[in-house]
Structure formats: C-alpha cells, structure tokens
Amino acid sequence: MNRTGAVVSAVLAVVAFEAVTVANARGALLALTGIPLLFLMIHLIWTLRERAPTPEELPGDIDNGPAEMLQRWQARAQMLADRADGSRADWDRHLRPLLAKEFELSAGQRVAKNRKAIEAAGRHQFGTELWRWVDPANSALRDQTTPAPGRAALDEILRRLQRM
C-alpha cells in the first residue's frame, strides 16, 4: 500500500471510529482514534526508513573527508596562482574579482557606495602600481596580449591584504 492509500485508510478509520463512538460511548473516542493513527505513523516511519539513500546514492559534493577537501583547495589555489602568470584577461577574469572582494570586505566599505573612498584606501594600502591589479574598475577582460603581473605581485597583494 502506498503512502496516499495508507493516509486515506487511516482517515476513514478515524471517521468510522468517531461515528461509532459518538453513538455509543464518548469516553472511548480518544483511545479508538489513536489506534489507526498509531498504525499510520508506524507505516510512514517504515516507508521513510526503506527510502533512506545509501552513501553511494548521495551527491558527490558532500564532504568526503578533510583530505579530499584539502586536495580540492590546493588544486584551486594552484590554478589561481597559475593565472597570475597568464594574460591580463586571465587575471581580470579569475583573480581580480577575488582580490577586489577580499579588499572590500577587509576595508569594511562597499565599492558601490563610495567609489572614491575605496580607491583612496586601495592606493594607500597597495600603492599605485599594485592597486591597478586589484581595482575592480580597471578590468580588461579581452586583453589577451598584455601579461598578468605574475606571482610576485600576487604574493605582495596577498601579503598586504593579510596585514589589513
């Protein structure tokens, strides 16, 4: 019997027991209506246990342990570090948004609210040369010919972000 059939059967049984009890004895109403509800709850619990997913059926994005999580983090960090040696378009597409967001969070101000204050804080924190690689307004996503600043610049930007 499926869940819908079990629910309908239980509701009909409760209604029948109530009709019988109202005609005969009101005191037994609570006890008699509890019996089908008890059976319904047991059936639902049984059905849910049978349908519980096995570990093989669980999605692959669920944490499978700290080692795998560390391995994914290292692979992502390596990929981002490789972007620092690529083209300016790679930098602007992959690194600049992360660095700009981190700076925005560290500065405690949103770029959209006060652009001039963020720009002044960025120049103060990074200097003019490094700020141009963090500044979200200085993006050139199609510039495949200009090289990115490299890992040394990325390291220095990250070091200065860490000091904030």
Rank of each mutant, 00 (worst) to 15 (best):
N2S: 10
N2Q: 03
R3H: 03
R3P: 02
V7C: 05
V8E: 07
S9W: 03
V11R: 14
L12N: 11
V15C: 07
E18Q: 01
T21M: 04
T21I: 00
V22L: 14
A23H: 07
A25I: 03
A25M: 10
G27Q: 09
G27I: 01
A28N: 01
A28L: 08
A28K: 01
L29M: 11
L32A: 15
T33R: 13
T33W: 03
G34Y: 03
G34M: 10
G34T: 03
P36F: 04
L38C: 11
L40C: 09
M41Y: 03
T47D: 14
R49S: 03
E50K: 15
R51S: 12
A52N: 07
P53V: 07
P55Y: 04
E56T: 03
E56S: 13
E57A: 12
L58D: 07
L58Q: 13
D61W: 15
D63N: 12
P66T: 09
A67I: 15
A67P: 01
E68H: 08
E68A: 10
E68F: 03
Q71S: 09
W73P: 00
W73Y: 07
W73M: 06
A75T: 13
A75Q: 13
A77Y: 01
A77M: 08
Q78F: 02
Q78V: 05
M79A: 11
A81C: 01
A81H: 06
A81F: 02
R83C: 07
D85K: 10
D85N: 14
G86V: 07
G86C: 01
S87D: 08
S87E: 09
R88V: 00
D90T: 13
D90C: 07
D92R: 09
R93G: 05
R93Y: 11
L98M: 11
L99R: 08
A100R: 00
A100G: 06
A100D: 04
F103N: 02
E104H: 08
L105K: 15
A107C: 05
A107S: 12
Q109W: 04
Q109R: 14
Q109T: 04
R110E: 10
R110Q: 11
V111K: 00
K113T: 13
R115S: 09
R115K: 15
K116F: 00
A117Y: 02
E119F: 06
E119K: 11
E119A: 15
E119D: 14
A121D: 13
G122A: 12
R123T: 07
Q125S: 13
E129M: 05
W131R: 08
R132I: 10
W133S: 09
W133K: 07
N138R: 15
A140Y: 11
Q144K: 12
T146V: 04
P149A: 03
A152D: 11
A153I: 06
A153N: 04
A153Q: 05
D155G: 05
E156H: 04
I157A: 02
R159W: 01
R159I: 00
R159L: 09
R160Q: 15
Q162G: 12
R163N: 07
